[in-house]
Structure formats: C-alpha cells, structure tokens
Amino acid sequence: MTSNKLTIGIADMKMAQREGELITYALGSCVGVCLYDPVIKLGALVHVMLPINMETGRTSPLKYADTGIRETLRRMELQGAKRSRIVAKMAGGARMFDTPGCGSLGNIGQRNIESAHMTLKRENIRLVKEDVGGTVARTMLFDVATGVGRIRSYNRPEQIL
C-alpha cells in the first residue's frame, strides 16, 4: 500500500511520481481528471468545476476543464512526461439536484464532461476509462504506483477505474 496521500481540493491539482495516492473528495457536477505517464509513473489529478475558461485575467486556470487539463499537461511535461504516453481517466459530472425549476443548474455536470472530452481529444490524450454522469457524488482515488483508480460513492459499491 502507498503511504503518502495527497488531497486535491476544488480548482486544484497535485502530482506524484512512483508512489503515492492522489485523492479528491466529493465530485458532484465537478470533474476529476487523472493524467498518467505509465513509463515514468508520473500521475496528476485535477479537480475542475466549470467547463470553459472565459475569465479575462485567467487567474485560476485549474477551475476550468479546458485550461485545467492543459495546465496539468504542461506541468507534467516539465517533470519529464511525454505527451504520447499520457493517458487519462476521469470521473464526476453528476447532476446533484434532479428537479425542474432550477434552470441550467443541472447541466453544469454534463457540460463539464463534454468540455473535458473535447480538451483531451484536442490534446491527443487517450481517455482509457471514465465513470461520469448520473446523480451520484464520487470520491476519486488514484494510485500512482499502479495507475489504478477507485471511485467511492454513497449507496453504491466501489468502482475500479
């Protein structure tokens, strides 16, 4: 088992190499994207909240799926990761409140998923596995030594990612 755990908050990203576990708690409509270079065992987990960065100053790139994924890739490459080897796993994008009368609230999760998909495609990153959508919150764990992810939810058995 790995000993060191790194917790990733909202609009946050952390990396670990060779060993360690990356955790992000309670992804609702937010999306967690794990990017992993299996050759050098470098893993990163980014927790994004919104689909597309339209901020003028761009002060918090990690809050958005598009700039969050790109910024993570950039920082991984600085650590020696090769773009052609990086694979992705993602989770989240749920609809937490399922009732009419709440307008666009329910769609943020879906828009986050679509934006993450599109960004990964544009950056030529292969998405190997995902657990997205639905109405359930997810805690995402990623073991950097093995590249295996796990998803913990309320009232649902643990999923391997």
Binding site: Y25, A26, A137
Partner: peptide, 9 residues
C-alpha cells in the same frame, strides 16, 4: 449525498 458535492452546486 456527500456535502462537498452538494455545496459545489
């Protein structure tokens, strides 16, 4: 559900 996900809405 998990309160972190509910608060994120």
């Amino acid at each position: 559900d998990m309160q972190g996900a509910i608060m994120a809405v």
